[in-house]
Design a protein around this nucleic acid. Structure first.
Lengths: 325, 325
DNA sequence: ATGAAAGCGCTAACAA
DNA sequence: TTGTTAGCGCTTTCAT
């Protein structure tokens, strides 16, 4: 900027005004604007991001803290978020929480250190208080996939309830009447909503669930044990609805261990899509989430919050999609 | 720092010396050091990362540019890299290249804009010249998984050749004698090395390959077509070795389409591990890479290059591991 | 419509 | 062993 100013016999201030697009506000003459632009172009001027960040106290970076990057669901969100951030000139710092509140604390540290201007996060267990505190301190925050209860912070996620409805409707269409729900603990809103959709759609058809497996620990191992028990006790044909990826895996293992025939004897729908599903032992219909859009929309909301200073508590629900198999 | 200095009747410089750990170098008295530390602690002093970055012309962030974040291989590398970076006080900016040289150019822009101090990258096709140029300009660079030929830049990857040897040896142990190689184009060193290991181990046993499928486009679809042809032409029992994840998927599809019996009739080993492999239609033995270590080691090398200014061209080869199934 | 000047928080060359 | 001073590149307030 100094160079350009000297070459043009202008002040650095004026150059700054032009180069940051504030020439309207400062009523810089079109001729000057043009001259500055030309020379900047010719000299290959690039703003020093660090200097600007330092001065403005903004880093032009945001952080995405996901639960588990190895899960294609989260990886997809990261990809969408990165694309969107890049298009707005923001860098995306990705953090893998691995379910640990301690690692979330570190992510919040990033913000306090001004390394990032805002945070997109999927609340892990035991992080509610911290997130609430961060929000009170004015940190621009957007939640994805999950939302902390009674926290007025924006959230972008799939319409879980609608997903369950899709799943159940699919099973009913195939003539199933005995449907089992396999889900996680109800203190997690996600699972509450998925269960609600499940119940709602069954009730609409005046049916009772064959069973509702509410697992404290929504891991493949737990799902396998619980489903195995049901398959042992109930010998008539069954339909199963597993409320997420891990539970679907466990359910599949239980089905295999019980040597039940799919889809004639038991049939399965799982939340979250599965890569190479066609190569699986059994056909699994899935409720696919639009992961990329979740990421993009979260970034959009966050940047909006950063720029306007407004703290929207809007919840954006994206529709799921059934992939029958 | 100013506050601390005033409270203690010291100069800001001295405080800086202490707080940045340079008190030995400047022979600050232990008493002073102690006083500064105490007060900093009490005041909850945290260095302004932006100010430091601005002044030192370093961002204390590095960028990891991966081929495809949805692939568990790359996601695993990202996780390892992030952990290691964090432990050194560095932030990790993750970029998904999606195989596009254009997006790599953007990543290089990040460096030129000083938003990151260095780059870990898996070279995509058509990016060789750009990476070479970046390296000439002195950009701290580390390659992962792949290396640009004749570019004196460090690289961290699995010992592909050793992986192939493991795979072939496994198949031979199972009594197979007719082994087919399914791999990608030989202008990519990865595939050259995997093929080399394959040939080497066969030769050691004085065997000829049953076939070598060298695909220009290493996609599942191409692999499926090529393998289908072989399965049609060769009716005797076969062993297949697929040189990466995508090729393994295609090969599996071909096997299914041909209705060959696994493992009695045909048997498969694939490079790169597969999640939920136990739930696949067929058992697939895999050559697993230590992805997390690749990420960690890459960051270590990069930070070393950044700190020392040395540009090592060291290639770190990590041993693969066979997961028999 | 343009410019002067101050200052963001920190580091480092140099002085004492 | 500690302090003085300058300056990194930019934005912004206030003059003109």
């Amino acid at each position: 900027m100094k160079d350009i100013a000297e070459h043009l016999g202008l002040s650095q201030t004026t150059v700054s005004h032009v180069l940051t697009g504030k020439h309207r506000k400062f009523r810089i003459s079109p001729a000057t604007v043009e001259r500055v632009w030309r020379l900047a172009e010719k000299l290959g001027y690039r703003a020093n991001v660090m200097a600007r960040a330092f001065r403005e106290r903004r880093s032009y970076a945001v952080c995405l803290a996901v639960e588990d990057l190895q899960n294609p669901f989260w990886a997809g969100i990261a990809i969408g978020a990165e694309r969107e951030a890049e298009e707005h000139g923001y860098a995306l710092v990705v953090t893998d929480l691995g379910g640990s509140a301690e690692r979330l604390r570190r992510a919040l540290q990033l913000v306090r250190d001004q390394r990032v201007d805002g945070l997109i996060v999927s609340p892990v267990r035991g992080s509610d208080a911290e997130l609430a505190a961060a929000h009170r301190h004015g940190l621009p925050l957007v939640q994805v996939d999950r939302a902390v209860a009674r926290l007025p912070v924006a959230c972008v996620r799939t319409d879980h309830e609608a997903g369950s409805v899709l799943a159940v409707r699919h099973l009913l269409t195939r003539g199933r009447r005995d449907v089992v729900y396999v889900g996680g603990p109800l203190d997690i809103p996600n699972y509450r909503q998925r269960l609600a959709g499940f119940r709602k759609e069954l009730r609409r058809h005046r049916l009772q669930p064959a069973a509702e497996l509410i697992l404290d620990d929504p891991s493949p191992a737990e799902a396998e044990r619980a489903v195995a028990r049901v398959l042992r006790d109930v010998q008539r044909p069954l339909a199963l609805f597993a409320a997420n990826y891990a539970l679907t895996v466990g359910t599949l293992r239980a089905i295999r261990a019980a040597s039940r025939a799919v889809p004639d004897d038991v049939e399965l729908v799982g939340f979250d899509d599965i890569q190479m599903a066609d190569l699986l032992l059994y056909p699994v219909t899935t409720v696919d989430q639009d992961v990329s859009s979740i990421g993009r929309e979260a970034v959009r909301l966050l940047l909006d919050a950063i720029r306007t200073g407004r703290r929207s508590a809007q919840h954006v629900l994206l529709p799921p999609r059934l992939i029958p198999r």
